[in-house]
Design a protein around this nucleic acid. Sequence first.
DNA 1: CGGTATCCCACATGATACTG
DNA 2: CAGTATCATGTGGGATACCG
Lengths: 134, 134
Amino acid sequence: MAVTAAGESRVPGAGTPDCREDSRPLIRSVLERIGDKWSVSVVCQLGESTYRFNELRRLVNPITQRMLSVTLRALERDGLVSRTVHPTMPPRVDYALTGRGLSLLDVLRDLAGWADAHAEEIGSSRAEFDAQAQ
Amino acid sequence: MAVTAAGESRVPGAGTPDCREDSRPLIRSVLERIGDKWSVSVVCQLGESTYRFNELRRLVNPITQRMLSVTLRALERDGLVSRTVHPTMPPRVDYALTGRGLSLLDVLRDLAGWADAHAEEIGSSRAEFDAQAQ
DNA sequence: CGGTATCCCACATGATACTG
DNA sequence: CAGTATCATGTGGGATACCG
């Protein structure tokens, strides 16, 4: 659904976000969430399936217990990931993407698309720049 | 143009980036470029027009001379921004987005779109989460 | 199993001063 | 004007140990 929530808080006449002063804080706020070292990997992994804490820990690169905990909590706080505790013994905790988390996955796919399309030329630019500067 | 450069380096059958293990480093590499404190603001501002160094400095929030210099150099290294020196006295240096920089602007607009669509509900989620945890 | 608490360091950014 | 050099600092994240 493409329903715009709370449209009245926007500038009248503003349709698509335009990257002018108005949108920059918004963009920054996304990047402050997913721009850290582990959020992307965790969200992408949860895009595959629901996982328990230590399953995730094994699947996501060499993430430390602490950073997985911190990252999951931040994502849960923003409603991107749900945390379900099964009060069994031993405890079982399942993490999954919410609908909002799934919508973020689409954005990440766009980022991946841009990166994929430009990775090689960016590599060339860097090599040339570094050679120039020596 | 949607031409895929160097398609042979990709996994056969891989069409759209999928956020599985393959794409995560790519996404991370974009975020390492634009996930810093100032790149988004600088790129967005250059989306408006070409600017001289001190024009940019005045237009981009309270960025320091040093960070503008560092940010511009990183963007130039990746071929996202062009730097043109006019050997006059006093010197004049113009910064502009390249075509590649403009294509990045599209991605940023998508990010802004997602953020705009979810900012309010994310705010609610955070408030609820923080209240719960106290 | 699923975490939290502590300590520590590298690095990103800021402040300030200086230069061609 | 358009930077660079130097120093100071806050914080993200790793290592390690402990807990219910």
